[in-house]
Design a protein around this nucleic acid. Structure first.
Ligand SMILES: NC(=O)c1ccc[n+]([C@@H]2O[C@H](COP(=O)([O-])OP(=O)(O)OC[C@H]3O[C@@H](n4cnc5c(N)ncnc54)[C@H](O)[C@@H]3O)[C@@H](O)[C@H]2O)c1
Ligand SMILES: NC(=O)c1ccc[n+]([C@@H]2O[C@H](COP(=O)([O-])OP(=O)(O)OC[C@H]3O[C@@H](n4cnc5c(N)ncnc54)[C@H](O)[C@@H]3O)[C@@H](O)[C@H]2O)c1
Lengths: 211, 211
DNA sequence: AAAATAACGTGATTATTTTCACGAATATTT
DNA sequence: AAATATTCGTGAAAATAATCACGTTATTTT
């Protein structure tokens, strides 16, 4: 499917964001064999030209009159995002949110396995979250090494977030998935992805205001 | 602070996204009185010009040599997003994620109150999630009316998501905050905000691939 | 087997967004 | 009180992204 040309052009940021949506959409469209740019566009409320142009950045080709072969499309996107590589992650904070994430079944599809969950509350250490036993922070170093963990998920209370980020980085973590609203300060080279869920509802609140 | 001109120009989409980040940042910066565009820019990894230009869309003015008055700035953004209006929301699905959200303390700051949480599992109905008792779906109609609920949060299993969306819309819900990966089909006029957390980690996975 | 059709692929055009550059404003220093 | 140093505000220029328009290609129909 890929022309395998050299890929000189940088992918536009808006295209990157849409590629994530195509990837998510395809995980839900396993029943059909082909899908047209028109159909993708309609489901995501964009134009078919946009879809086709986005795909050219990954050298993804469809068939005229038929559309795009779903398994091939999914494979291309999986390779692009690296969801075919299994990454072990660790979760820090076995509270409401951290526990929910630890039990989430959907991670497997995107190549994520939760290797361990940590907390500093003696009451929680040793208790079960799904199939995982909550570990003390002292175990972090060992687990990161043992499971070659590169990604850490921060789900601790807000006032501990920065301190935990530093602890993770000290122990070799390369990317932080931050579920707290705290703006983490990190050295260059560390990837930080903020998952601030409140931004989601701000869009809703603003749209409702306008009416 | 606002010039209170008529606001003819549409706000660019990327600006809207950044406005949400400014809002979130300010909720964490309550200690100082003023903040410069330079400082905001540095924390969010953008340029100061961008920050200043974004603020002009809301007619927000700063003071030369000093920066922006934080309480005024926060007030403007709060009004823009409507976070000063208290909205009651309901959560459908009292599982791992729905329960975590129901207990989240951070909603108050953005003008959100969880009025009720629902489930269809007889085992869960009547049990406590934080201070809320899990209600059966039959109560949805009454609660929406009683608390004038406009926003519904979907946290049910994936195969029930569409059906619950329809139920909510039938009962007068105007906006859906969808935490499932399902692409909901809704009639025009209904706001749907998809909170797909997997997109967050796709960015990380892709950036790690490149190295 | 030719014609018609439906969808892709993409260079050119248009629209949007960011960056630049510099004047204006205000606090601080001399 | 004038000079100086910052930081804001913004039109103009540059960069980026979306749309358009049409040629191409594979399938289906006649
Ligand atoms: N609950 C939600 O729906 C939600 C939504 C958005 C954001 N968040 C954010 O996620 C974070 C966690 O939220 P939550 O609702 O799970 O809170 P929580 O209080 O239920 O859980 C926090 C957990 O972190 C642990 N912890 C605190 N400091 C620690 C440290 N230094 N080392 C190790 N563990 C530590 C606590 O023992 C606790 O188990 C918060 O920052 C919150 O703002 C939560
Ligand atoms: N857990 C996570 O961290 C996470 C992360 C991302 C997305 N999600 C999505 O959120 C949703 C919920 O995830 P979860 O982990 O809380 O699952 P869960 O199984 O713990 O909870 C689902 C809840 O929904 C209830 N439910 C199912 N069908 C229902 C119906 N028709 N009416 C009312 N209630 C119904 C179930 O009884 C259960 O209590 C899923 O769609 C999942 O994909 C979860």
């Amino acid at each position: 499917m890929s022309k395998n040309n050299n890929k000189p052009i940088e992918i536009p940021k808006p295209t990157f964001e849409r590629l994530k949506k195509y990837h998510a959409l395809l995980l839900q469209e396993k029943d059909k064999e082909y899908i047209s740019s028109e159909e993708i566009a309609e489901k995501l409320n964009i134009t078919p030209e946009q879809v086709r142009k986005d795909f050219t950045y990954l050298n993804i080709n469809g068939k005229p009159k038929i559309g795009y072969h779903i398994p091939s499309l999914e494979k291309e996107l999986s390779e692009f995002f690296g969801t075919w590589i299994l990454d072990n992650i660790i979760i820090i904070g076995a509270g409401n949110l951290g526990s929910a994430l630890a039990k989430y079944k959907g991670f497997k599809k995107i190549g994520i396995r939760v290797a361990a969950i940590f907390d500093n509350d003696p009451e929680k250490i040793g208790s079960l979250v799904g199939e995982l036993s909550v570990l003390p922070l002292a175990e972090i170093k060992r687990v990161i090494k043992r499971f070659k963990v590169k990604i850490g998920v921060i789900c601790v209370s807000e006032n501990s977030a920065q301190e935990i980020a530093e602890l993770l980085i000290q122990n070799g973590i390369k990317a932080i998935w931050n579920f707290t609203p705290v703006n983490l300060q990190t050295p260059p080279g560390i990837i930080v992805e903020n998952q601030d869920i409140t931004t989601g509802i701000l869009t809703i609140k603003h749209l409702m205001e306008k009416e």
